[in-house]
Amino acid sequence: MVVAPAPLASELRVSVGRFVRRLRAERGEADLPDAQFGVLTYLMRHGDQTPGALAQRERVRPPSMTRTVNALAELGMVAKAEHPTDGRLVVVRLTQAGRREVEETRRRRDAWLARQLDTLSAEDRALLDRAGALLADLAAC
């Protein structure tokens, strides 16, 4: 069966969007909005950052990132400190509470997905394994 790219693109866009929304519904104890959780995961992967660098990475305006960072700081998920070489800047670092939130959210998401995958046949899981690799390749373009 030959599948035309345009209809497949539409179907995949909708399906992947629904899948991502359902997966993101699995959250840690803090029940953080996606934007705040995204900042925590970025800090966990890349270390301390300035709010400006975070804003650029998340493609938001600096005042919006400042609000996000302040909300996370109030929750104890991040801490702010003076920049080591530029006293005008602030550096945001992940706290232990922020690290635990990322780990718990990831654990819950992985557990939910593992339960869903367990309902599939071995053949369907193998197909998804291949599809996952293809989607990763497409995302890298």
Rank of each mutant, 00 (worst) to 15 (best):
S10R: 13
E11V: 10
L12V: 15
R13S: 15
V14E: 11
S15N: 11
V16S: 02
G17Y: 13
R18C: 04
R18I: 05
F19R: 02
V20H: 07
V20D: 00
V20N: 03
V20P: 02
R22F: 04
L23S: 02
A25M: 05
R27L: 04
R27I: 04
G28F: 01
G28Q: 00
D31E: 14
L32Q: 04
P33H: 09
P33T: 03
D34L: 14
D34V: 13
A35S: 15
A35F: 07
Q36V: 01
Q36D: 11
G38Q: 06
V39D: 00
T41V: 15
Y42C: 10
Y42V: 04
Y42E: 08
L43E: 01
R45P: 08
R45L: 10
H46G: 06
H46N: 09
G47R: 11
D48S: 15
Q49S: 15
Q49R: 15
T50K: 10
T50P: 00
G52C: 08
G52N: 12
A53E: 13
A53M: 08
A53C: 09
L54M: 05
L54P: 06
Q56L: 12
Q56E: 08
Q56G: 11
Q56D: 08
E58M: 15
E58Q: 14
E58A: 13
R61I: 06
P62A: 07
P62N: 02
P63M: 08
P63G: 07
S64H: 09
S64F: 06
M65P: 02
M65W: 07
T66Y: 12
R67V: 10
V69A: 12
A73I: 06
A73W: 07
A73Y: 11
E74P: 11
L75K: 15
K80D: 01
K80H: 07
K80W: 02
K80A: 11
A81G: 09
A81E: 10
E82N: 11
H83E: 00
P84S: 09
T85G: 07
T85L: 15
D86S: 10
G87R: 13
R88P: 05
R88E: 07
L89C: 04
L89Y: 08
V90I: 08
V90N: 12
V90P: 07
V91L: 11
V92D: 08
V92S: 15
L94C: 01
T95I: 05
Q96D: 12
A97I: 01
A97E: 06
G98R: 02
G98T: 02
R99M: 11
R99C: 05
R99G: 04
R100E: 05
E101G: 11
V102W: 00
V102K: 05
E103V: 15
E103D: 09
R106A: 14
R108P: 00
R108M: 01
R108N: 05
R109S: 04
D110Y: 14
A111D: 10
A111R: 14
W112A: 08
A114Y: 06
R115Y: 01
Q116C: 07
Q116E: 14
L117F: 01
D118G: 06
D118Q: 14
D118A: 15
T119M: 06
S121K: 04
S121Q: 04
A122Y: 11
A122M: 10
